[in-house]
Amino acid sequence: MDTLANVIVSSILLGGVYFILSLGLNIILGVLDIVNFAHGALIILGAYSTFLINRALHWDPFILVLVDMVVVGVIGAVLYLCYLRFTVNSPLVRMFALIGFNSVVAALLLIFMGSDYRTVPIDLGTWYLGPIPIRVTQVIAFAFAIALGVITIVLLNRTKVGKAVKAVTDDRTSVQLAGINDRRLSLLAFTVGAGLAGAAGGIISTYVTFGSESGLAFAIIAFAIVIVGGLGDIWGGAVASLLVALVLTGVTVYLSSALTNTALFLLVLFVLLVRPRGILGRGRV
């Protein structure tokens, strides 16, 4: 019984982080129709941003999550302005460019940061929920992730710009006909999406060790969540994050950690076959 409760609590905490991990990817996909293969690189840039600033200035790693968001958002904006906006009609070229961006980032990090695995020193102890131990770091990471997610959703639903961004998601042609500058909205969406990936990297850096190529493993989880939640469906992504965390944790504890990737892909396959619009049925096909 303790083990089951432990699995549930652990999955909820992990699910919160997975939500922020997939949110940026989801927004970019929803608004720009770009499958952001550079997502892993943006995540890891956020992690390194926390590591470097924390080492130099000793700022609190959780405050740095906001800085990561700005830093990686700017990198995303530059990537979009300098390259991606010219590839609107060349999805294949864009795909390879984004995959290439991962390799470039990994190589640059290796050259300038070396091959050492990095860690952000933070240990805030452990709380106990009855018999269930919970690391305070993970609770704060969860809280930050949920707060950022909620703020993003509120901004998308309650502000004029946010509504315009959502409108582009739903019907780009109508938005253009209404005279709204969808190029600026696209830049904004990519910047915000990249910034959220950076924030996710910052949050992750507080409890995992990372190296120049560590982004891929997290990007795979983010892609699975976006598919399970439904392409572009943010609420679906939230539910999918919890589900994926529960599946990965449950499979490890009750079956074998060797089966986690298999379980993840079976889940993706199952959702694609049974609910191609995602778990809530509101995503794009």
């Binding site: 083990t3 652990s10 992990l14 995992v208 560590s214 493993a217 990965l248 944790t249 504890v253 950690s257």
Partner: peptide, 12 residues
Amino acid sequence: APGLTDANSLAI
């Protein structure tokens, strides 16, 4: 498999 993204479940 090397490259853990979460070790809590393994520990449990």
